[in-house]
């Protein structure tokens, strides 16, 4: 059994960085905790929920996907080779690791997005089992668990009352990481701590059944009333993958950027002719819920939400996916979906 002192996680990060990994860990950043690239002196925080998700390091907020030299009225394509550094997502949440199944699927279900795939192939995923959860956590309602190994190459278990960590390799990438960790890990024994108690709060199948019959329900107005359309939920969400493509140019060079986007933004679906198929915030919020709990399950046999609760923790208007889903399930109980 490979173990280390919980207080020595930064030594492990240091060792892995020294071995050539880009080490992504939850660190203190002002008054928040966020996933960031490890640098010596940073404070690793595994006791608070990071505001961002691990997707930032596989599907960056903004990235150059095409580049041209501009010559008056003509242009010359320039090579685009986005960096795909060997990366470890260390002590991320199991719900972050679980979200990779969604991203892997969307970037490969038909056309294969090698910009994403190159980074994904270079990434080793090492979640830390959650021994505490907060009121917004609902991984167990969407097929996850606080000690889930879904998407993990190795798993960190808190042990001996939080004083130690057990590192359990699960894949070849995980074994390579243990190898690279060398002396930062010791052989020994430790008793794993119990994972957090995260009660199931709703049944996604019941939510999905209600959604199939209730595109026009009055409830959408009520559920979306507070939405400001700020998009914070989508940016924090580990499975939200919608993006925009925008060109930026000087006189001599242009780049095409892929930037995160959100179905909560008013311009997201607006046509050039002025028509907007999702004309109000209720239609946009409905798409957000439908996409995660109806369209993705229908299409890919996945639930498009890992229950991380980030959207609720960040929402300036106090909206919560958990609340929407429990409310929908309540509604479904009141008026069971008609048999067709």
């Amino acid at each position: 059994m490979k173990i280390l002192d919980a207080s020595k996680l930064s030594d492990l990060a240091d060792t892995l960085a020294g071995a050539g990994y880009r080490v992504v860990v939850p660190v203190q950043d002002g008054d928040r905790v966020r996933y960031a690239e490890w640098s010596p002196g940073a404070t690793i925080r595994t006791d608070a929920f990071p505001v961002n998700s691990a997707k930032d390091f596989l599907f960056p907020r903004s990235e150059v996907i095409d580049r041209y030299q501009l010559d008056g009225d003509d242009f010359t394509p320039l090579e685009v080779r986005p960096p795909a550094p060997r990366t470890v997502l260390l002590a991320v949440r199991p719900c972050d690791a679980a979200s990779l199944a969604m991203l892997d699927t969307i970037f490969n279900w038909d056309y294969e997005d090698d910009l994403y795939n190159a980074r994904r192939a270079a990434t080793t995923v090492v979640p830390l089992v959650c021994t505490r959860a907060d009121a917004q956590c609902f991984c167990t309602s969407v097929g996850g668990a606080p000690d889930s190994s879904a998407g993990a190459d190795a798993l960190l278990h808190p042990a001996d009352g939080g004083s130690r960590l057990i590192l359990e390799p699960l894949t070849d990438k995980g074994k390579a990481l243990v190898e690279a960790a060398g002396g930062a890990l010791a052989d020994g024994k430790a008793a794993p701590d119990a994972p957090a108690d995260v009660p199931a709060r709703f049944d996604p199948d019941k939510v999905r059944a209600w959604l199939a019959d209730n595109f026009e329900a009055d409830l959408w107005d009520l559920l979306s009333y507070a939405c400001l359309g700020c998009g914070a939920c989508a940016y924090a969400c580990p499975t939200c993958h919608c993006f925009d493509m925008q060109d930026e140019a000087t006189r001599t060079e242009s780049v095409r950027l892929r930037n995160w986007d959100s179905c909560g933004f008013a311009l997201f679906t607006k046509h050039a002719g002025g028509h907007n198929p999702r004309p109000d915030q209720a239609a946009r919020w409905r798409n957000r819920v439908m996409h995660k709990f109806s369209y993705i399950p229908e299409r890919f046999d996945l639930v498009g939400c890992t229950g991380c609760g980030r959207c609720a923790r960040l929402c300036p208007a106090g909206m919560a996916m958990l609340e929407a889903c429990t409310r929908i399930e309540e509604e479904a109980r009141k008026a069971p979906a008609h048999e067709s």
């Binding site: 970037f107 038909d110 056309y111 993958h241 993006f243 997201f268 798409n287």
Partner: peptide, 8 residues
């Protein structure tokens, strides 16, 4: 190509 998520 089925990725950017806005035409559904």
């Amino acid at each position: 190509v089925g990725k950017c998520g806005r035409c559904n």
